[in-house]
């Protein structure tokens, strides 16, 4: 790729999604952009970028940003936050909300492992929280990620990363070479395309937000914006999960860590969301 083409992609990703793309990682750029160029019927990445310059077509621009945004994930990634959700947050919220809906959001859900891990926990805990009304939402920047996530189809490699075998047996069936999540679990989740650094005022209010390993993928000025967006979308007594160690990236004034609970944050009581 030519340096000026790389710059264009870097700037496009930062401007549209606040995404940090390292211009030095030519291999990563080419391995992500190559499949998009083929899919969009260009002879090469160079041809695709030339077309982008010439026409500034919105759809193509987003296809490029979205492919750079995707990242790998795993079921029950880091394990600890999910145990915390199951053992402390779920029972606490069930008691506090007392039958009112509890809204949970997996932001930047990627191929869906995080939100489905939460769905499996809720399904497995139902008997312990009778009367609790759980609503699960998942969003991603990428339409393609959302499509894959909604299909509930995973490779043998994917279902062996983080997913205990008893959960696999309980919630999945084999479908040719793939593993298919049961419709019961899939139907628990509502999906939407959301750009986390855009205006989130229409996204609604949530009691728990999982937004893990997103901060680190953003250009620095966008991190505070994301956190403010999340603070506005979180109910005052709600909980935010960030990736482990991500707090070092500047929590802004919106959140404070919950002591002894790695990855867990609460709204700072003094934070007042601007109208």
């Amino acid at each position: 790729m030519r340096p000026e083409d790389i710059d264009l992609v870097v700037q496009l990703c930062a401007a549209r999604a606040g995404l940090f793309v390292d211009p030095g990682k030519t291999y990563l750029l080419e391995s992500r952009l190559g499949p998009v160029a083929r899919r969009e019927n260009f002879g090469s990445i160079d041809d695709m970028i030339a077309a982008l310059r010439a026409k500034r077509e919105d759809r193509l621009a987003w296809a490029i940003v979205e492919c750079m945004a995707s990242s790998e994930t795993a079921f029950f990634r880091d394990r600890g936050p999910f145990n915390l959700f199951r053992d402390e947050i779920l029972p606490t919220l069930a008691r506090l909300r007392d039958g009112e809906p509890i809204r949970i959001w997996s932001a930047a859900c990627g191929s869906g492992q995080e939100v489905y891990s939460l769905a499996m926990i809720i399904e497995d805990q139902r008997a312990l929280i009778p009367g609790a009304k759980l609503e699960l939402f998942a969003s991603d920047l990428s339409e393609r990620a959302l499509e894959k996530a909604q299909s509930g189809l995973y490779t043998q490699f994917e279902i062996q990363r983080g997913l205990p075998i008893r959960q696999l047996v309980r919630h999945f069936e084999k479908a040719d070479e793939m593993w298919a999540l049961s419709p019961r679990i899939r139907q628990m989740v509502r999906w939407r395309r959301i750009n986390l650094v855009a205006d989130l005022s229409a996204a609604g209010r949530f009691d728990v937000i999982f937004c893990r390993y997103v901060l680190g993928a953003l250009v620095e000025p966008m991190r505070a914006r994301l956190l403010e967006n999340l603070a506005r979308a979180l109910s005052p007594d709600g909980f935010l999960f960030l990736g482990l160690g991500e707090a070092a990236m500047g929590l802004s004034e919106a959140f404070q860590p919950v002591s002894g609970r790695p990855g867990l944050y609460a709204r700072n009581p003094s934070f007042r969301a601007a109208a």
Binding site: A74, R79, F157, Q160, R161, G162, P164, I165
Partner: peptide, 9 residues
């Protein structure tokens, strides 16, 4: 990765 993940499970 798979062995480490499964042994952790």
């Amino acid at each position: 990765d798979i062995i480490a993940s499964k042994f952790a499970e």
